[in-house]
Design a protein around this nucleic acid. Structure first.
Lengths: 210, 210
DNA sequence: TAGAGATCTTCTGTATGCAATACTGCCGCC
DNA sequence: GGCGGCAGTATTGCATACAGAAGATCTCTA
């Protein structure tokens, strides 16, 4: 028996496919075909689909199976502020003790982002790491779980998150300011910049809808 | 084929059992026994268990099935502020237009609470209705989904939410003040009282741990 | 008598099978 | 020509079956 249930791997794989568009918005998921393609039976596959539906990355249509939710600009406009507030909350609920050493680590990742930007590489992976690190000290496991569930939904809309080098540079600057505010122990300032970081991302998103 | 998937009913039933303590904290869930008892097969039962684990009402131990998470005072201390902030957020994101008529409806439910209090009845059901009504106009479906997922976790700790008639009366008063603030269009005041309402509930909870 | 090991049972995780519904294409009718 | 009904197929939702790991029990030894 595998240490890790099959459904976990399947959730990951299907999430990837939904995010990169291999599962088109609005399309239905055919359980038999997908199970055969992934080399598993329908049982763990259905378990994964149900998990994804609980997180909102799929929707369950009784009698018709599961389908990828269509894109909805309104949804994006609501998801960004939601993630922003949730992350800010997680930050506010991280005690100063637990924040020790974090600003330096954050700046190190921000440096990586700058390097990646110069090289013209994709920033989203590094950006993700930065945010994960930022929240890593928050003791509220349930809040972190909610954030983890919500972010993938947002990533569907994030195709052009770093709308150009200008926005990327600006975003890196915001990251550095958050770290600086944390160093000063100014949590309100840090979370304010954090929220703005997310909201600006949304603004840029609107300019280049897929 | 049923219009409503079996797993939905099962989720409801199992949630109830976890909340009322019929499934003891820390206990393992035996799929075969439970399936037989509920008159279903293991397949939809497992689907329900997975859904509940995603919401945090159960935990999945690979190779050992599902178990009811043990009680943890720290968890309660984190869940109450979390729900408080989430509800406040939902309230802030409800536009004034959509709030029209809501205060009166809220006060009507608050009246019900007062009546129930005089009769010595259980207030939690009415209280739940009041909060549901408060958030019913919020357009952010994802936020509402998160709240819906989190509240049941909190209810496990809520055995003595209305710690005595004094607290109950106080809580009803807070509800009325929230409605009044909404009538005045003072959203910040409303959400501040709302948060305090939840935090006070937590304070009372601590006095009478099960 | 306590502990380690082997064996046996129980239970989970996955696969397969079955019945009923939803979809598709076709034919007849308006 | 378009629309409604009907037969056939495809697909879901649930039930059952099977293999292997976790847990329990028993035995043997120190």
């Amino acid at each position: 028996m595998a240490r890790t249930p099959l459904r976990s791997d399947l959730i990951e794989e299907i999430t990837t496919r939904v995010l990169d568009g291999r599962f088109a918005a609005g399309a239905r998921v055919n359980e038999v075909h997908l199970a055969r393609e992934l080399g598993v039976s329908r049982t763990p596959l259905r378990e994964a689909l149900i998990g994804l539906a609980d997180r909102g990355l799929l929707v369950s249509a009784p009698g018709r199976g599961f389908l990828v939710p269509p894109f909805d600009p309104d949804e994006a406009r609501r998801l960004y502020p939601l993630v922003a507030e949730l992350e800010a909350l997680a930050l506010r609920w991280t005690s100063p003790l637990e924040l020790a050493g974090l600003p330096d680590a954050l700046d190190a990742v921000a440096d990586e982002m700058a390097v990646a930007l110069e090289r013209g590489e994709d920033l989203s992976e590094v950006d993700e790491r930065w945010h994960e690190l930022l929240l890593s000290r928050c003791p509220n496991a349930h809040l972190l779980r909610l954030i983890g569930q919500t972010k993938p939904l947002l990533k569907r809309y994030e195709s052009c998150y770093f709308g150009g080098a200008a926005r990327a540079a600006e975003s890196i600057g915001e990251h550095r300011r958050i770290a600086a505010a944390l160093r000063d122990g100014d949590l309100p300032a840090a979370s304010a910049v954090l929220v703005r970081n997310w909201v600006k991302a949304l603004a840029y998103l609107g300019k280049d809808e897929r």
